[in-house]
Amino acid sequence: TLFEALYDYEARTEDDLSFHKGEKFQILNSSEGDWWEARSLTTGETGYIPSIYLAPV
């Protein structure tokens, strides 16, 4: 399942991933609670993103 960003997000740590509204992600690991490891389909970068900023596509 792909997810789309509902809002912009600016990374706060080196493990976080910055993204823009409308960016799409492949989720790599969603077992860490509210922060999911994801790969951006726009940039190819991976990192942790807040799941509350996402909606399934």
Rank of each mutant, 00 (worst) to 15 (best):
T1D: 13
T1G: 12
T1L: 14
T1K: 13
T1C: 07
T1Q: 13
T1F: 12
T1P: 12
T1N: 14
T1H: 13
L2S: 05
L2Q: 06
L2A: 06
F3L: 03
F3N: 01
F3P: 00
F3G: 01
F3Y: 15
E4D: 02
E4H: 08
E4A: 07
E4C: 08
E4I: 14
E4P: 00
E4Y: 15
E4F: 15
E4G: 03
E4W: 09
E4L: 11
E4S: 06
E4M: 13
A5E: 00
A5P: 00
A5G: 03
A5Q: 00
A5N: 00
A5T: 03
A5M: 01
L6F: 04
L6H: 04
L6R: 06
L6K: 08
L6Y: 04
L6T: 06
L6A: 04
Y7P: 00
Y7M: 13
Y7Q: 12
Y7T: 10
Y7I: 13
D8Q: 05
D8C: 05
D8S: 09
D8I: 02
D8E: 07
D8K: 05
D8P: 07
D8H: 06
Y9F: 09
Y9H: 06
Y9E: 01
Y9Q: 02
Y9W: 09
Y9C: 04
E10S: 10
E10Y: 10
E10K: 11
E10R: 09
E10H: 11
E10P: 05
A11N: 06
A11W: 03
A11H: 06
A11M: 04
A11Y: 02
A11V: 02
R12Q: 15
R12V: 12
R12N: 10
R12F: 08
R12D: 09
R12L: 12
R12S: 12
T13Y: 15
T13P: 05
T13V: 08
T13M: 14
T13Q: 13
T13A: 12
T13E: 09
E14T: 12
E14D: 14
E14I: 10
E14L: 11
E14R: 09
E14Y: 10
D15Y: 15
D15E: 12
D15N: 15
D15T: 12
D15A: 13
D15K: 15
D15F: 15
D15G: 15
D16K: 15
D16M: 14
D16H: 15
D16I: 14
D16V: 15
L17D: 00
L17H: 03
L17G: 01
L17A: 02
L17V: 06
L17E: 00
L17K: 03
L17Y: 06
L17M: 15
L17I: 12
S18A: 07
S18W: 03
S18R: 04
S18V: 03
S18N: 05
S18K: 04
F19R: 00
F19V: 06
F19S: 02
F19L: 07
F19Y: 03
F19I: 09
H20K: 15
H20G: 08
H20Q: 12
H20Y: 11
H20F: 14
K21G: 04
K21Q: 08
K21F: 04
K21V: 09
K21P: 03
K21M: 08
G22T: 03
G22K: 04
G22N: 05
G22V: 00
G22E: 02
G22F: 05
G22A: 04
E23L: 01
E23T: 07
E23G: 02
E23W: 07
E23C: 04
E23A: 05
E23I: 01
E23R: 00
K24S: 05
K24Y: 12
K24D: 01
K24H: 10
K24C: 08
K24G: 02
K24P: 03
F25L: 05
F25Q: 00
F25M: 03
F25S: 00
F25T: 00
F25V: 01
Q26M: 14
Q26V: 14
Q26P: 00
Q26S: 08
Q26T: 11
I27P: 02
I27T: 02
I27V: 11
I27F: 03
I27A: 02
I27H: 01
I27E: 00
L28A: 04
L28I: 12
L28V: 08
L28M: 08
L28W: 05
L28Q: 04
L28G: 02
L28H: 04
L28K: 05
L28F: 06
N29V: 08
N29H: 08
S30Y: 12
S30Q: 12
S30C: 10
S30K: 14
S30M: 14
S30I: 12
S30G: 11
S31Y: 10
S31K: 11
S31D: 11
S31E: 11
E32G: 15
E32I: 11
E32S: 14
E32H: 15
E32P: 09
E32V: 11
E32A: 12
E32R: 14
G33D: 14
G33T: 13
G33Y: 10
G33N: 13
G33E: 13
G33F: 10
G33V: 12
D34F: 13
D34E: 12
D34P: 09
D34K: 08
D34H: 09
D34N: 08
W35S: 07
W35V: 09
W35G: 03
W35Q: 07
W35Y: 13
W35C: 07
W36S: 01
W36Y: 06
W36D: 01
E37W: 15
E37N: 07
E37S: 07
A38E: 01
A38V: 15
A38W: 01
A38I: 06
A38Q: 01
A38R: 00
A38T: 02
R39C: 09
R39V: 14
R39Q: 12
R39P: 01
R39N: 05
R39W: 08
S40T: 03
S40V: 05
S40K: 12
S40F: 03
L41K: 04
L41D: 04
L41N: 05
L41E: 09
T42Y: 09
T42M: 10
T42E: 14
T42R: 12
T42L: 14
T42C: 08
T42I: 10
T42D: 11
T43Y: 02
T43P: 00
T43W: 02
T43A: 02
G44D: 06
G44P: 00
G44Y: 06
G44N: 08
G44S: 05
G44A: 05
E45N: 13
E45G: 08
E45A: 12
E45K: 14
T46S: 09
T46N: 05
T46M: 09
T46D: 03
T46Y: 08
G47N: 03
G47R: 03
G47V: 05
G47L: 05
G47I: 05
G47A: 04
G47F: 05
G47T: 03
Y48Q: 09
Y48M: 13
Y48T: 07
Y48V: 09
Y48F: 14
Y48N: 07
Y48S: 07
Y48E: 03
Y48L: 14
Y48D: 02
I49F: 02
I49N: 00
I49H: 00
I49Q: 00
I49K: 00
I49V: 15
I49Y: 01
I49R: 00
P50C: 10
P50K: 12
P50R: 10
P50M: 13
P50D: 08
P50W: 14
P50Y: 14
P50A: 09
P50S: 10
P50N: 15
S51D: 02
S51Y: 10
S51G: 07
S51I: 09
S51N: 07
S51V: 11
S51E: 04
S51C: 09
I52N: 13
I52F: 12
I52A: 15
I52T: 14
I52Y: 12
Y53K: 04
Y53G: 06
Y53R: 03
Y53T: 04
Y53E: 01
L54I: 09
L54G: 01
L54N: 00
L54W: 01
L54K: 01
A55T: 14
A55I: 15
A55N: 07
A55M: 12
P56N: 05
P56T: 06
P56H: 06
P56K: 07
V57L: 11
V57K: 03
V57P: 04
V57H: 06
V57M: 09
V57T: 08
V57F: 10
